[in-house]
């Protein structure tokens, strides 16, 4: 991986300046539904396509932000401060 990622605070930088924080997930908030809890804790969708994810600018401003990225082409579709990503684009042809 050597694509360029834009930090909302610092601008475009090589991806090795950042730490990957994983997929943006919805936190399970109960221990009652064991399946939902374990799914949140241990499963990742590992999307081949557009994915929302967390990034930490470890060699820069040391702030977290979110990005939407096409994981097969490593094309960064948008970046935003946490929780501020625009709604995803429609899938092609859909």
């Amino acid at each position: 991986m050597s694509f360029i990622l834009s930090c909302p605070n610092c601008g475009p930088r090589a991806v090795d300046e950042y730490a990957y924080g994983g997929e943006v997930t919805e936190r399970a908030r109960t221990s009652g539904d064991e399946r939902a809890l374990f799914h949140y804790l241990y499963f990742r969708t590992n999307t081949g396509g557009d994915q929302r994810e967390w990034w930490f600018h470890s060699s820069g401003c040391r702030e977290w932000f979110q990005a939407e990225r096409n994981t097969t082409r490593n094309e960064v579709l948008q970046v935003a401060r946490p929780g501020e990503l625009a709604p995803s684009r429609e899938p092609a042809g859909g």
Binding site: W54, F56, S58, W64, P82, G83
Partner: peptide, 23 residues
């Protein structure tokens, strides 16, 4: 140290609470 700073700031990025974390 580095990991905890990331961990603290990450959850504050999620929760957006009115506090700051300085390493």
């Amino acid at each position: 140290a580095g990991g905890m700073e990331q961990w603290f700031t990450w959850w504050n990025a999620v929760w957006k609470m009115d506090c700051e974390i300085v390493n």
